[in-house]
Simulated assay, not measured.
Amino acid sequence: MSMALGAQALPAGSALDLVRSLSPADLADVFPTPILLVDLADARPDEVAALTARRPPLVLVGVGPGAHAGAGAGAGAGPGPGPGADHPGPGSGRPSIPALAGLDVLLPEVLAPGDDVDAAVATLVRAVGEHPEAAVALVGLLRMAGRLEPLDGLVAESLAYSTLLAGGDFARWLAARPPREHRPVAQPVLTRRDGDRLVLTFNRPEARNAFDTATRDALVAALRAAAADDSLTEVELAATGPAFGAGGDLTQFGTAPDLARAHLVRTGASAGAEIVRCPHRTVAYIHGACVGAGIEIPAFADRVVAAPDVAIQLPELRLGLVPGAGGTVSVTRRVGRHRAAWMVLTGTFLDASTALRWGLVDEVAAPR
């Protein structure tokens, strides 16, 4: 019964009564797949607000006509990194009932007209069922995102990431992978001065610019040097090869011997944090595959310009993880937490037009 309950939408009042009547441990028994579908038809705002205020350890998904996707943003009208997770910019859509903002996913906000709602629900239920710990950790992070400053959000994300690295889900993913050889390069990040502009270019094209520790350290060092240079006004991020970034280098996943120490390293050497702190305007020019860190880092920039061929994805859930390069902060502040949750939970790819409409990028233009 409990699996069927998790896979069917309940009226908001019934969902609230259920969550009120059960302890978190009992909820785990009733929902072995920790997802609760809430029927938005005739949903009373006070019931939805009371439900979300309880912060149940469940992925709360709004299903039905009770919210609408906002108007798409035009070129250059993306929200940038400033509006905050619960107050996304014009490309992000807003629920017509403010109380619905407390839900974790709003299907009317993420689906296009004509999309199969039943298929979307099935995708969410399957993903949460396969990776329950990571899914619950993800929505917990995103629920906090709008109340935390970016640097605090990065700390929260890193704590969750290290916790999940120690989990059985990630261990199973790691054990199923054949070993791969790491391919270092002499200069993983190229630097070029152009007047008052500094161009930083990822330079591991043979690895599709996978983000390894050497790339991270080189990028952080370059961003710190740029921040200290008063003669600069702009920092540009770009990449060589067919992909801007294929995500974290999988050859280095699971190699940290001390996960507590790894958290300190991750927060002490964060490219996203350095972009947040940088006093100069930052512009990212992205193209091709922008996966994991390949979108999480450029999304911190003041402006993101995407080539028409971009394919954007946050795939970490299938590893039993949450984004670890700042995506719960950077992507969420651009598209809102409902769409950020959808991206991670489903692992869906966004094309250039969707990324522009959602506000994840500010402009679509041919590569320079």
Rank of each mutant, 00 (worst) to 15 (best):
V305T: 05
F244V: 07
A289P: 03
R216T: 13
A273M: 06
T282S: 14
A325Y: 00
D229F: 05
E274R: 05
T282L: 12
G272T: 09
A271E: 09
A293P: 04
F202A: 15
T233H: 12
D249V: 05
T215G: 01
L264E: 15
A256C: 09
G241V: 00
T251C: 07
A207H: 04
G247A: 12
A228C: 11
A218E: 00
G324I: 03
A214W: 03
R216E: 09
G247Q: 02
L237M: 11
P242K: 00
A289Y: 00
G320K: 03
A246Y: 06
A301L: 14
E274L: 08
Y285S: 10
E316V: 11
R281W: 01
G327F: 03
D212C: 10
D258V: 07
G326P: 04
V322N: 06
E206F: 07
V322F: 10
A299K: 01
G272Q: 04
A284E: 15
H287F: 09
A239K: 00
V283E: 13
V220S: 07
A299R: 00
E234M: 12
P315R: 03
A284N: 13
V265S: 14
A299N: 06
V305Y: 07
A246R: 00
A221S: 13
L321V: 04
A227M: 11
D212P: 06
E206K: 11
E206T: 13
D212N: 09
G294A: 07
V304Y: 01
A284P: 09
R216S: 10
F211Y: 13
S231Y: 10
V283M: 10
F211S: 01
N203L: 07
A273E: 02
